[in-house]
Simulated scan of single mutants.
Amino acid sequence: MANRYTDTLQMITTINAQRNAVGDLVGGTSQWVTLSKCREEPSDGGTEVSTVSAHATNKSSAIFFPANAPAVPVNAEIRVLGADGTVQVQGMVMRYKRYKHYGKIWV
Protein backbone atom coordinates (compact mmCIF):
# COMPACT_ATOMS: atom_id res chain seq x y z
CA MET A 1 0.00 0.00 0.00
CA ALA A 2 1.34 3.42 -0.93
CA ASN A 3 1.96 6.06 1.71
CA ARG A 4 -1.16 8.22 2.01
CA TYR A 5 0.77 11.25 3.31
CA THR A 6 3.08 12.54 0.58
CA ASP A 7 2.95 16.29 1.33
CA THR A 8 4.52 18.32 4.17
CA LEU A 9 2.57 20.48 6.65
CA GLN A 10 4.35 23.60 7.90
CA MET A 11 3.36 26.40 10.29
CA ILE A 12 4.91 29.84 10.57
CA THR A 13 6.33 30.73 13.97
CA THR A 14 7.94 33.89 15.30
CA ILE A 15 10.97 33.60 17.56
CA ASN A 16 12.62 36.22 19.77
CA ALA A 17 9.61 38.56 19.66
CA GLN A 18 9.15 41.10 22.47
CA ARG A 19 5.96 42.63 23.87
CA ASN A 20 5.65 46.42 23.68
CA ALA A 21 3.87 48.67 26.23
CA VAL A 22 0.44 47.78 24.84
CA GLY A 23 1.13 44.04 24.83
CA ASP A 24 1.59 43.57 21.07
CA LEU A 25 4.36 41.30 19.82
CA VAL A 26 7.01 43.27 17.91
CA GLY A 27 10.28 42.32 16.29
CA GLY A 28 11.57 38.81 16.09
CA THR A 29 12.02 36.63 13.04
CA SER A 30 9.45 34.43 11.35
CA GLN A 31 10.26 31.00 10.03
CA TRP A 32 8.38 27.98 8.68
CA VAL A 33 8.49 24.94 10.98
CA THR A 34 7.70 21.46 9.65
CA LEU A 35 4.99 19.77 11.74
CA SER A 36 4.11 16.55 9.95
CA LYS A 37 3.57 14.70 6.70
CA CYS A 38 0.08 15.29 5.31
CA ARG A 39 -2.28 15.07 2.35
CA GLU A 40 -4.00 18.16 0.91
CA GLU A 41 -7.32 17.86 -0.91
CA PRO A 42 -9.06 20.80 -2.58
CA SER A 43 -12.42 21.47 -0.97
CA ASP A 44 -15.43 22.66 -3.00
CA GLY A 45 -13.23 24.57 -5.42
CA GLY A 46 -12.80 27.50 -3.04
CA THR A 47 -16.51 28.22 -2.79
CA GLU A 48 -17.82 30.84 -0.40
CA VAL A 49 -20.35 29.72 2.21
CA SER A 50 -22.60 32.29 3.91
CA THR A 51 -23.95 31.51 7.37
CA VAL A 52 -26.98 32.85 9.25
CA SER A 53 -24.86 35.55 10.90
CA ALA A 54 -23.95 36.87 7.43
CA HIS A 55 -20.37 35.71 7.93
CA ALA A 56 -18.87 34.54 4.62
CA THR A 57 -16.42 31.66 4.80
CA ASN A 58 -14.15 30.76 1.92
CA LYS A 59 -12.89 27.17 2.19
CA SER A 60 -10.15 26.11 -0.19
CA SER A 61 -8.67 22.87 1.18
CA ALA A 62 -8.92 20.04 3.67
CA ILE A 63 -5.60 18.79 5.03
CA PHE A 64 -5.33 15.28 6.50
CA PHE A 65 -2.44 14.15 8.71
CA PRO A 66 -1.54 11.33 11.17
CA ALA A 67 -3.27 11.36 14.56
CA ASN A 68 0.06 11.67 16.40
CA ALA A 69 0.99 14.98 14.71
CA PRO A 70 1.25 18.11 16.91
CA ALA A 71 -1.85 20.24 17.42
CA VAL A 72 -2.27 23.33 15.23
CA PRO A 73 -4.05 26.35 16.74
CA VAL A 74 -6.99 27.99 14.98
CA ASN A 75 -5.94 31.17 13.09
CA ALA A 76 -2.37 29.91 12.70
CA GLU A 77 -0.82 30.45 9.27
CA ILE A 78 0.10 27.17 7.60
CA ARG A 79 1.20 25.90 4.21
CA VAL A 80 1.42 22.54 2.50
CA LEU A 81 4.44 21.65 0.37
CA GLY A 82 4.11 19.02 -2.33
CA ALA A 83 6.62 16.22 -2.83
CA ASP A 84 8.56 18.48 -5.21
CA GLY A 85 8.70 21.35 -2.68
CA THR A 86 6.13 23.61 -4.33
CA VAL A 87 3.50 25.33 -2.17
CA GLN A 88 0.13 23.65 -2.78
CA VAL A 89 -1.94 25.75 -0.37
CA GLN A 90 -1.22 28.48 2.16
CA GLY A 91 -3.67 30.11 4.54
CA MET A 92 -5.13 30.47 8.01
CA VAL A 93 -6.49 27.49 9.96
CA MET A 94 -10.28 27.80 10.14
CA ARG A 95 -10.84 24.58 12.08
CA TYR A 96 -8.70 21.81 13.56
CA LYS A 97 -10.05 18.38 14.50
CA ARG A 98 -8.29 15.24 15.70
CA TYR A 99 -10.09 11.95 15.11
CA LYS A 100 -9.15 8.45 16.30
CA HIS A 101 -6.94 7.54 13.31
CA TYR A 102 -6.16 10.90 11.67
CA GLY A 103 -6.42 14.67 12.02
CA LYS A 104 -7.97 17.26 9.73
CA ILE A 105 -7.46 20.99 9.16
CA TRP A 106 -9.78 23.22 7.17
CA VAL A 107 -8.08 26.13 5.38
Rank of each mutant, 00 (worst) to 15 (best):
P42H: 03
A71N: 06
V80L: 02
H55V: 15
R98Q: 10
A69D: 04
G27V: 04
A62S: 13
T14V: 15
V89W: 06
A54I: 08
N58E: 09
V107H: 03
A67K: 07
I78Q: 00
G103K: 13
V52Y: 09
E77P: 03
S60I: 11
T13E: 04
T14N: 03
S36H: 11
A76E: 03
K37H: 07
V80N: 02
R79Y: 02
W32A: 01
E41K: 10
A21T: 10
N20V: 04
T29R: 10
A67C: 01
Q10S: 00
G46W: 03
V72W: 15
M92A: 11
A54Q: 13
E40H: 10
H101I: 07
K37L: 08
R4Q: 12
R19L: 12
V89R: 12
K59W: 07
S61I: 07
P66L: 11
K104L: 14
G23N: 00
Y102C: 05
R95M: 03
V80R: 07
Y99E: 00
I105F: 09
G23M: 04
Q31A: 12
A54S: 14
Q10E: 05
W106V: 12
A17R: 08
P70M: 07
A21P: 02
L35D: 00
S36Q: 10
G82H: 10
N3K: 12
E40V: 14
T8C: 03
P42K: 09
S61D: 12
I63S: 13
D24A: 12
V87S: 09
Q10I: 00
L81A: 03
G91W: 01
I63F: 13
W106F: 10
